[in-house]
């Protein structure tokens, strides 16, 4: 059973352990600055090019980024301090979106891990369900949105269902794979020391499968954001996706761009938070892997 993750060649992500040694503070600061400059110049250049290009072209479909930022600030982030600077519109837009996103994702995560453990522990069950799982994960989730709209109507239940159904597959398949491929010697060790039942599940099987489970959770979080947007574009009157499609239909292009940029920032933010949490929880895995390779 192959696994849907962003499979990458192994190896550590950020090399260069930094040859800092006994250099003084100014030299160190300089090194950090030049390092940052070497990484960041392109993104600055691209943003500047975007600004200049759009100003020259004056194409109403492509407002300059400064305008986009200004609009973002106006419609969402110019609220009172008591609301963390969020405007009422921001709260109206963000709240339903976040409820859909995290509701669907949490449902998928809980269901995927639980089912995955059950299926992964039994070979027979796994073989019986294999074709169904392969089929289920192959359905592009948006194709089911019209169906969910008909049976659940527009609204949160439809969106949560869409997201949960769409993102459960990476979690489920990765959990099955992780639980099934626990090292045989680790299981034998557990048998020798009479670690059975819930103890075995909690202390041996789940930690051993955790790296794969987390990989699945991360893929599904990115996917959940996509499905949140698409389900709001099609079947919603509230949320960030609805804002996007409304401003497109009334041809308020800067507002639409503000939505796109906001979603991009949210994507980066969620991804970054997840990576941080994962690093904390799975520090043992990175350490052990580094020595293996």
């Amino acid at each position: 059973m192959s696994v849907l993750t962003s499979e990458r060649p192994s190896g550590e992500r950020h090399g260069e352990p930094g040859k800092r040694g006994r250099r003084g503070a100014p030299a160190l600061a300089l090194a950090i600055l030049t390092g940052a400059a070497a990484r960041l110049w392109l993104i600055v250049l691209l943003t500047a090019g975007w600004e200049v290009g759009t100003r020259i072209a004056k194409d109403p479909f492509f407002p300059p980024p400064s305008t986009i930022l200004r609009v973002m600030h106006e419609i969402w982030f110019s609220g009172p301090v008591s609301q963390l600077l969020l405007t009422d519109k921001a709260i109206d837009d963000f709240r339903p979106s976040f409820i859909n996103l995290f509701g669907g994702w949490s449902l998928a995560a809980a269901g995927g891990v639980l089912l995955g453990i059950v299926i992964g522990r039994s070979r027979a069950v796994g073989e019986i369900l294999d074709p169904l799982l392969q089929f289920g994960r192959s359905i592009p989730p948006p194709t089911l949105i019209p169906f969910f709209i008909v049976i659940l109507d527009l609204g949160t239940p439809m969106q949560v269902t869409t997201i949960a159904f769409g993102v459960v597959w990476p979690v489920l398949l990765n959990t099955i794979d992780g639980v099934r491929t626990v090292d045989s010697l680790q299981l034998q060790t557990a048998r020798v020391f009479d670690i059975t039942g819930a103890q075995r599940l909690r202390r041996i099987i789940l930690p051993a499968a955790a790296p794969k489970i987390f990989a699945g959770l991360r893929v599904s979080l990115g996917f959940a954001l996509i499905l949140m947007v698409i389900s709001e574009l099609i079947g919603s009157t509230t949320g960030i996706g609805a804002h996007l499609i409304n401003s497109q239909q009334s041809l308020e292009l800067p507002e639409m761009w503000a939505g796109i940029v906001l979603l991009g920032l949210l994507g980066c933010l969620f991804n970054a938070i997840f990576v941080l949490v994962e690093r904390r929880l799975l520090s043992w895995h990175r350490g052990a892997r580094r020595l293996d390779s």
Binding site: T189, P207, W284, G287
Partner: peptide
């Protein structure tokens, strides 16, 4: 009790050394 040849697989990498030693004592 059994001591296996392949220590890197029979010790659990997600537990500290102390927890590895203490784990069987739960039983």
């Amino acid at each position: 009790a059994v001591v296996f040849q392949d220590y890197s697989r029979s010790l659990f990498p997600w537990m500290s050394v102390r927890d590895n030693v203490a784990l069987p004592l739960r039983r």
